[in-house]
Nucleic acid binder design. Structure first.
Lengths: 339, 339
DNA sequence: TCATACCGGGACATTTTATGTCCAGTGATT
DNA sequence: AATCACTGGACATAAAATGTCCCGGTATGA
């Protein structure tokens, strides 16, 4: 296939451009459906008129439906997107990025989606979609999936779709409260994801701040203990990666702790752990649930994080996570390579 | 790969058309280089102006060179042609033809090139090129290649190129004089092919008509004997297939022999043997060199013949040559299947 | 050495296609 | 009922493709 694409690049570069344009349009429609021409055209940065011509074409090809509510892709269009995804990545150089980053960070697998989530919010959704596809590839029957919080994971949850094959999936939050907004808490996301996947879920109801005694007694609670056991026996973990300072500040972290984090030069954060540039743990939020050493034993670990601003954090975290799959975006990927 | 192309076709319905057009242009340029626009455009049946646009494009892509002598393909263009050959065949249905004919005639391998050598003379060249490629695939070091005469074989010789790998090839004529024009005699073609291939060759200088005694004494000649031994130990035979009557008439065949050939319903001819519809030998020209039973023992036998008019002959001959590889053209192939 | 035929490429009219611009009609939502 | 975002028709205009003509250069053969 590689040779075919290379040959096409030489023999019809002009057509490949058109193809990319149409693919991108279809892609965006799927992402934002139902959507109107105006919004879409400004989003894609092309004039409304040319979008209109293309849209008409896509409609004639039965790849999209057009209604008064806006445009949306047909099953056929969806199928097409799936079939062309790899090739378009190849054409646009994303595959190349993936290969480079995989060898640069020396990790299991890398998926790079187009765009930069710092600049365009929809890129997160795209990462979410990629993550879901990645999950489905790796899930076997009777899986327990542990998820963390964060806006990126929220996007993953939003893009979740029910599994067609009869697979029982149980979603659990990876760790207890880390001090986030309700919307971005692991519990919320866990429930949302399970709902979208038509799977089951268990939650971990633990207050953020706990005295040691209370902590010990909670652990002994049968209801809690059961969930904790499930978490520890999960065979897939999906988590985000954050910039250390940003995360610490977003959470209601005590100022002395923030000081400590800064002093120890933490750059990355993931499921409550803070890492320095070398990938060493310099701080951890005290809460129950999965621990770093547990994660290393989990079969599938998928890290999702994008945006040029997170490149440094990704690099640092990945230094100790060669076992993981990384899902990121073009912005972060290019930044990673540039360094 | 098919799904990829199908998907591409949905996004770009005329992709294949354009690809085929450009491929065909490049292809023809290689075949007829150096060539000018006018000749090429009439040959391809497209207007000179659109050819000009395409040619300009190909030049910009560095696929062809343009000089005052005409256009010729660059090494890069040549590489591209090679890479795309299989796929273009698939697209244009030639691969399909190959498969059908292979099973229809039940032979080792079939290569079909585009066109009909009855209608366009350059198709012979194309078969020649295919034959050369086929030879190179099968040749090992230290090969002896026996070739016959005929215009088709002359085309093969013209398209011969030096072997890059250090392979010693010795060319010999398969059989002695069969009564052809000097230009199409096995000796001539043998020498030409060796020259083009930068290989060595031996010739077989025997008069066409010989009395039995003279024949016997010639065979004993050391110089002749040596060549005959080489011929019999050859590991590749390249030959054409002709229509029986046409061949008999072209050669200075005695009228009583022609009568005999006609009476016995010969339809095919190859290296001096005449075959009826069932593939049975009904006559043979008496000359030295390789015999039919020798041919059956040769490792690689390649038959080259094209043109709708030769379909019947090909079919007949192949009935007793399941061991051979057939190189033919679209015209003959379609005719073969139609029957 | 010269004539000739073929070569590429410049120039421009003409046709076809793509794009810009404006706006009418429609269905859903508030 | 009013509003809003959506589609789709219409038409001018810009751009690209194609047809047509011709020129100067160069290789080839007389």
């Amino acid at each position: 296939m590689q040779t075919l694409i290379d040959a096409q690049k030489k023999l019809l570069p002009d057509l490949l451009e058109i193809m990319q344009k149409r693919y991108q349009i279809l892609h965006h429609i799927r992402l934002m459906q139902p959507i109107g021409r105006r919004v879409l055209s400004t989003n894609l940065g092309i004039s409304e008129r040319v979008l209109r011509s293309e849209v008409q074409f896509l409609k004639e090809q039965n790849l999209i439906d057009i209604s008064s509510a806006g445009m949306s892709v047909t099953p056929e269009g969806s199928e097409l997107l799936k079939n062309l995804e790899d090739m378009m990545k190849e054409v646009s150089g994303l595959k190349d990025l993936e290969r480079k980053i995989k060898s640069l960070l020396d990790i299991k697998d890398v998926i790079v989606v187009a765009g930069d989530s710092d600049l365009s919010p929809w890129v997160k959704k795209e990462m979410g979609r990629a993550c879901v596809a990645c999950m489905k590839e790796r899930l076997t029957s009777q899986s327990i999936v542990a998820v963390t919080g964060g806006t990126t994971l929220a996007a993953v949850a939003e893009m979740m779709t029910p599994e067609l094959k009869q697979i029982d999936i149980l979603f659990v939050p990876a760790r207890g409260g880390l001090g986030e907004d309700v919307k971005n808490q692991a519990n919320t996301i866990c429930a949302r994801m399970a709902e979208k996947a038509m799977g089951n879920y268990r939650l971990l109801h633990v207050p953020d701040q706990l005295s040691d005694e209370a902590y010990q007694s909670m652990i002994e609670e049968p209801a809690i203990k059961e969930v904790l056991d499930l978490i520890r026996s999960s065979n897939m973990v999906i988590h985000g990666i954050g910039d250390a300072i940003t995360m610490a500040e977003r959470r209601k972290t005590a100022s002395e702790e923030i000081e400590k984090i800064k002093q120890r030069r933490a750059v990355a954060e993931a499921f409550g752990y803070y890492f320095n540039q070398e990938g060493e743990v310099v701080h951890k939020v005290k809460t129950m649930g999965i621990q770093l050493e547990d994660v290393k034993k989990v079969e599938h670990v998928i890290a999702v994080a994008g945006g040029a601003s997170k490149a440094k954090a990704i690099k640092a975290y990945m230094k100790q996570a060669h076992h993981s799959v990384l899902i990121t975006d073009e912005g972060a990927a290019r930044e990673l390579i540039r360094e």
